[in-house]
Design a protein around this nucleic acid. Structure first.
Length: 419
DNA sequence: TCTGGGGTCCTAGGACCC
DNA sequence: TCTGGGGTCCTAGGACCC
């Protein structure tokens, strides 16, 4: 059996831990640049605020209803997430960290025989140790655990814990689950399936395997098996190394000056190099892109350049150099830019780098330099040591007008809370 | 007039997830 | 004025090989 444990309204719940006055109030968290609504308290949901809704056209409504609004504070959410995972590990060593607020547990080795007791204990312990509410769904496969979790969250009488074990319960759950609520069925498939008169998870099980294989993909066929109770999406207990790493941001305001684009792009390349080193990878492909505002009336322009590197690297110097080279190729001085990004791919282990025959880059020196800057920046804060070209970000950095404190990760904010 | 069979690798695009 | 960011996987089609 698998359990899916998922934090209710995760980002909002994190803010509430350190700001108890938010309890009972409508609270929302905005995406980067304070753009869209990405987390809502129950009270905010009741006001009809929708997920992913742009916040700017709701400004008046938010004010009238006294909605508490926050910029997203990923340093805080990431730290709370890690603490929750530590608690979950006390229930089962077989754990898959599926996202920042969701984990799958395999329960075969659990000391609890009674699954209901287990679910309640998970909920209780996380509430007590961390201070957030979770929902627990338990089922024979990961897809069924997902469905159970959805029911636990939606139907009040379950009190946050739902177990799908007997055939009767599973059948009933599948009949009551709309096709769009099934894990792995997105917007397009939903439309297509409904057009073919498949409206519920139960309907989905009645269709022929070949039809699914032909009209959808093998992924959806796997999903069907999972819903039938045959586990075929394995638990991934080891976090697989990433195959691509991206750092992309919209700007706080429109950028026209190439100097500011250079600052942003070199900063994003720097972030990519840090992320590469963190997972001990090097990259041999780098893509840089810039684009104009897709929502403006002007013609939309997306410019990008992909560079294949002769020697794989995770060096800040190297990646910044190539990113700027790419930027130079695509930059046009007649456009108004809204966003830029750097993506590195072709990732491999940093332990065995294939050197170029005619390449004289001093890999060793680069490595020593990176280790030193990583150490200093970890200890004293991001970008304490940086390249001059990164600039100060004044002209392009994110808008984060309603950011809460780094209550658990920054000393000055920890002191604030203690007082 | 007639023109095989069996592969691999790469890429772009489209679907999905949180 | 103001609309997020970061990933994965699959498939079809084109190029190549013998």
């Amino acid at each position: 059996m698998y359990a899916l444990v998922d934090v209710n309204n995760f980002y909002v719940s994190c803010e509430k831990i350190f700001n108890p006055k938010l309890e009972g109030k409508p609270v929302i968290i905005l995406s980067n640049n304070d753009g869209c609504i990405i987390s809502r308290s129950d009270e905010a949901k009741a006001l009809g605020l929708k997920m992913a809704e742009p916040a700017f056209n709701k400004k008046q409504y938010l004010k009238e209803n006294n909605v508490q609004v926050f910029s997203s504070n990923y340093a805080l959410y990431g730290d709370i997430s890690n603490r929750i995972i530590q608690v979950l590990k006390s229930f089962s060593p077989r754990i898959e960290i599926y996202s920042i607020d969701e984990s799958f547990l395999e329960l075969s080795d659990s000391e609890f025989v009674d699954l209901g007791k287990l679910g309640n204990e998970i909920k209780k312990r996380i509430q007590r140790y961390i201070g957030v509410h979770v929902s627990v769904g338990i089922g024979k496969t990961k897809a069924l655990a997902k469905i159970a979790n959805k029911i636990a969250k939606k139907e009040k009488q379950y009190n946050g814990v739902c177990i799908l074990n007997s055939n009767r319960d599973i059948d009933c759950a599948l009949r009551n689950t709309s096709i769009e609520d099934v894990w792995g069925i997105g917007r397009q498939y939903q439309k297509f399936l409904k057009y073919n008169e498949i409206f519920t998870a139960h309907d989905f099980l009645t269709i022929n395997d070949n039809w699914i294989r032909k009209n959808l993909t093998v992924v959806s066929l796997r999903l069907k098996k999972e819903l039938q109770g045959t586990s075929c999406i394995p638990l991934e207990t080891i976090l697989p190394a990433k195959k691509a790493i991206a750092t992309t941001r919209g700007f706080g305001k429109i950028v026209t000056n190439v100097k500011h684009l250079k600052e942003a792009v070199s900063t994003y390349a720097t972030r990519c190099s840090e992320k590469l080193r963190r997972q001990n990878s090097v990259a041999n492909i780098l893509t840089v892109f810039i684009h104009t505002d897709p929502f403006s009336n002007d013609k939309y322009h997306y410019l990008s350049k992909t560079i294949h590197l002769e020697v794989s690297t995770n060096s800040q110097m190297e990646l910044v150099k190539f990113a700027l080279k790419g930027l130079k190729k695509i930059y046009r001085n007649d456009l108004r830019y809204k966003k830029a990004g750097v993506i590195v791919s072709g990732l491999e282990s940093a332990n065995n780098i294939q050197k170029g025959l005619f390449n004289d880059t001093d890999i060793k020196a680069d490595k020593l330099l990176s280790e030193a800057t990583d150490y200093i920046n970890r200890k004293y804060g991001r970008d304490k040591i940086k390249l001059a070209i990164q600039g100060d970000g004044k002209e392009w950095k994110l808008k984060q007008e309603m950011l809460s404190g780094k209550y658990t990760t920054q000393w000055s904010d920890i002191i604030k809370i203690k007082n």
